Amino acid sequence: MVMPRSNRSHGRAAKAREPHPELDVDRLSAGWRRTESRDGREWNVQPVSEAQAVKRYVCPACGLDVAPGVAHLVVWRADGVLGDAADLSARRHWHQHCWRIGTR
């Protein structure tokens, strides 16, 4: 009598029991961040997806709301003289179109 073959890989079962490495959220999100030059200054530009956009902001270019659920950009100085913490605390949420056309 022949025993039915198991489709289950024993190697996979052992691997499933191993703990997963913790995700580095900062590293993952920084992958989308880019640096742009405007008016002789360097800016960090971080896209925010529709799913990540959960709060209402005011776009500094047009003065209109960036509503929850709307993809947009978070922008802050990359070359500020007061340091990274000050630059990050001064970040602003822009409509993608407003940043692209450079309205200030």
Rank of each mutant, 00 (worst) to 15 (best):
I101Q: 11
W94V: 01
P68G: 07
E50I: 11
D87A: 10
G40I: 04
E50S: 15
A53E: 01
D65Q: 13
V70W: 01
A71G: 02
D84W: 13
A86K: 11
P47F: 05
A51Y: 14
V48M: 10
L88Y: 15
P68Y: 06
Q96F: 00
K55H: 10
R92F: 03
A53T: 00
V81T: 14
V74K: 08
H97F: 02
L73G: 00
R91S: 15
W99K: 02
Q46N: 08
E50H: 07
G83W: 08
V54Q: 15
Q52V: 01
C98I: 04
W43Q: 09
V58F: 10
L82S: 11
A85D: 15
L73H: 03
A53F: 00
R77G: 07
V75P: 03
D79S: 10
Q52G: 10
A67L: 14
E42S: 15
A78I: 03
S89W: 01
L64P: 02
P60H: 14
V75Y: 03
Q96G: 00
Q96E: 06
A71I: 00
L64E: 15
V81P: 10
I101S: 07
H97R: 12
S37N: 10
L73W: 03
D39S: 14
R77P: 02
P47M: 02
K55A: 12
G63H: 07
G80Q: 11
V48E: 02
G40N: 05
V74S: 09
E50W: 04
A51E: 15
E50Q: 13
A85Y: 12
P60I: 13
D87V: 00
W99T: 04
V54E: 15
D87H: 05
Q52C: 03
A90D: 14
H95R: 08
C59Y: 09
V66L: 05
E42F: 01
A51N: 07
W94L: 07
V54F: 03
D39Q: 10
W76D: 14
